[in-house]
């Protein structure tokens, strides 16, 4: 669950793995890749709405992280640092696609995994949320998912997105408000005072 304090920057084992990776131990770096690939991919997939682009970005992020481990401040939050690199890569991708007149795909590739126990109603609800999230502006989507999926504080979200804590808080708030109004229009504020 999200909290408004700094997230714990990883367990003691992670600190050692980072140190070892800084010293050139590739197995240690591979362990970091194992630990963070899926969550980074999930976030970037929802930003790009394209599996292949997201995979490219994740790979690029880890390559940059490997090259830049020297600049990582020991003791600080590795996850936030990694996601910040991922965010910068995403921003660069958007810029380059703007220049070449490509755009991010309008529709997402169908996810190829889901839990077998999902009911039809649950699946429909999840599809509706997925579509509503995809409609959010990228900055808002990005902040909301970091906060809710990754459980990062507003301050950490701000650091990753290169903005102020207040702006991060505002984006999460507006994104949630927008989703609620799309998903439950009859329950949105202004409708039922009493």
């Amino acid at each position: 669950m999200p909290r408004d304090q700094e997230a714990i920057p990883g367990d003691a084992g992670e600190t050692e793995r980072i140190e070892a990776a800084r010293a050139g131990d590739r197995a240690a770096f591979a362990a970091l890749v194992e630990a963070y690939w899926d969550r980074l991919f999930r976030w970037l997939f929802h930003l790009t709405r394209d599996r292949h682009r997201a995979e490219d970005l994740v790979q690029e992020t880890f390559l940059k992280a490997l090259a830049g481990l020297e600049s990582f401040r020991p003791g600080s939050n590795f996850r936030a640092w990694l996601f910040r690199i991922g965010h910068n890569n995403f921003v660069n991708l958007k810029r380059s696609e703007k220049r070449t007149k490509q755009t991010m795909p309008e529709d997402m590739a169908a996810p190829d995994r889901g839990s077998p126990g999902d009911t039809v109603a649950n699946k429909e609800a999840l599809d509706a949320v997925t579509a509503a999230v995809a409609d959010l502006p990228p900055d808002f989507r990005s902040a909301l998912l970091l906060h809710v999926q990754e459980g990062l504080s507003h301050r950490e979200v701000a650091k990753i997105l290169g903005t102020t804590e207040e702006t991060a808080r505002w984006r999460v708030f507006k994104a949630r408000q927008k989703l609620m109004s799309v998903l439950d229009p009859e329950l949105t504020p202004n409708n039922k005072d009493g």
Partner: peptide, 9 residues
């Protein structure tokens, strides 16, 4: 949102 589906990577 926590369970938002994503493809397998």
């Amino acid at each position: 949102l926590v369970n938002l589906p994503a493809p397998n990577s």
